[in-house]
Amino acid sequence: MDSRTAVVTGASSGIGAASARALAAEGFRVFCAARRTDRVRELAAEIDGVAVACDVTDPDSVASLAEAVGEVCHVLVNNAGGAFGSDPIESADPDDWRAMYEVNVIGTLQVTQALLPALRASGDGLVLTMGSTAGRIAYEGGGGYTAAKHGTQVLSETLRLELCGEPIRVSEIAPGMVRTDEFSLVRFGGDQEKADAVYAGVPDPLVAEDVADAVAWIATRPSHVNIDELVIRPRAQAAQHKVHRVE
């Protein structure tokens, strides 16, 4: 395992950073990729990994990531993504929708394309994309994000079909409510009150480490075992619209 390499995009915080730590604990040499270079440098130093500045929406930046990784890669975790805004379709900002599609879908596409030769060269590769339960069902105020995450899901499904017969597994994790420091805060433009309201009264929402544990589990299955999809929610969330809250 010491010679196996992994790439995690969006590794500067939340699920990405936790996933990098979890993979490093399993013996992977992890390339920590994100736009915020100060954070990924700290993370890489902590886990004896490699920090790479990368904006997944920028083709040149993605090409630089592939060059840094080199000729062989065993695991790619497409984690970079995000939600921007929560307005209804009638008043939603098209620029928010474009931004969500660019980072969640086009960014995932570009990184996957750039690293497929190295994954193929490993003889035992894994493309693991971070989707969402929003990629399975719509909800009010989430049109742009659910559209983007549906796109992410279909990208994974199509890639699995197209790579059938090759030594590359394709998996998707679809988390439900995960409380991280930044996801909801970014979505609501820095409004801490709105961000806190998402999880108000929810006993024990998921945390980044819960999802990272699933990332490491999938990455360490035997080569012939493909986890197509893994949906993970907190016990308090039965569905997008059914969440137990306590006062």
Results as ranks from 00 to 15, higher is better:
I173Y: 03
I173Q: 04
G176C: 00
V178Y: 07
R179D: 13
T180Q: 08
D181Y: 00
E182C: 00
E182S: 13
F183D: 08
F183G: 02
S184R: 04
L185F: 02
V186S: 12
R187A: 10
F188A: 03
F188M: 07
G189I: 04
G189S: 06
G190Y: 06
G190F: 04
E193C: 01
E193D: 15
E193Q: 14
K194M: 07
K194H: 06
A195P: 08
D196S: 12
A197Q: 13
V198S: 12
Y199F: 15
A200E: 15
A200R: 11
G201K: 06
P203M: 13
D204K: 15
L206W: 09
V207A: 11
A208Y: 11
A208V: 10
D210S: 14
V211Y: 10
A212F: 07
D213R: 15
A214S: 12
V215Q: 11
A216F: 03
A216M: 09
A216L: 08
A216S: 10
W217N: 02
W217R: 11
W217V: 01
A219C: 15
T220Q: 05
T220A: 03
R221M: 10
R221E: 04
P222V: 00
S223V: 07
H224L: 02
V225E: 13
V225Y: 07
I227F: 02
D228T: 13
E229M: 09
L230M: 07
I232S: 05
R233K: 13
R233T: 08
R235Q: 14
A236V: 09
Q237H: 06
A238Q: 13
